[in-house]
Amino acid sequence: MTPPPVLELRDVSLHHRGSDTPAVQDVSLTVETGGSLALVGESGAGKTTLLRLLLGLGRPTRGTVAFDGTELAPRDRRQMRAFRRSVQCVFQDPYSSLDPRRRVGDIVAEPLRSLGLDTKATAAPKVAEALERVGLPADAVRRYPHEFSGGQRQRVAIARATVCHPRVLLADEPVSALDVTTRVAVVDLIAELKRERGLTVVMVSHDLSVVASLCERTAVLEGGRVVEQGDTARVLGAPAHPYTRRLLDAVPRLPV
């Protein structure tokens, strides 16, 4: 028997209070262990809403979010602890996702400390290892986020998200705030982590080239609905839906 998908959305709809149209509607997605899924779409397509649902930060109005085959219950502390330990996130804006008043060492140690996995002393070597893995110098632990560039900050965020060796990494536009050369380096880093650790990756992005570099499967969202999903090579290589084709055509390309 195959294990249940690590994350699954079943016919999920979410209606924000005071809004006429649902933010997402009848979305069903599965994230298999070790796989990688991209949620593609433009602003207002419901990407971020879906990501928040997958992170257990909100509850759908209809449908269920399941983790390892069991419905996610925010009140079930034991399940949530296991969930938080298994599912970690990297955010889009590295300038807002790191607390400006904490040292990098404390920032990276946060999942270990908050999940009760480690004390300050036992966390230190793991933090050092995580920072080394993302290519930051050891003395970073004592420094503050503003002392780092955007790309380095995103590395700090990746170190935080991987320090407790989660099974799933959710990433919300992880490189869109970065310069092109830095972007390539961070994409490479995520790809390496994915390969080395068998990390499952779910990425929200509007950048199709980044999606194509990192994810095996792609779901295209428009107006809160999934209009097309499947293998990335198929969806982006031979798009069936006109919206997907439009997105692809809009990607600016270098002159040959």
């Binding site: 992170l55 930060l57 996130c89 790191l98 607390d99 008043r101 999940l115």
Partner: peptide, 26 residues
């Protein structure tokens, strides 16, 4: 509204701890 608060939550940090470690210092 800052992402580091969301990051704290997805790191499993409880609300009281989030207030003490992130909100008040900021």
């Amino acid at each position: 509204t800052q992402d580091y608060i969301t990051a704290a939550r997805t790191s499993g940090t409880s609300w009281p701890r989030t207030v003490a470690q992130h909100v008040l210092p900021n």
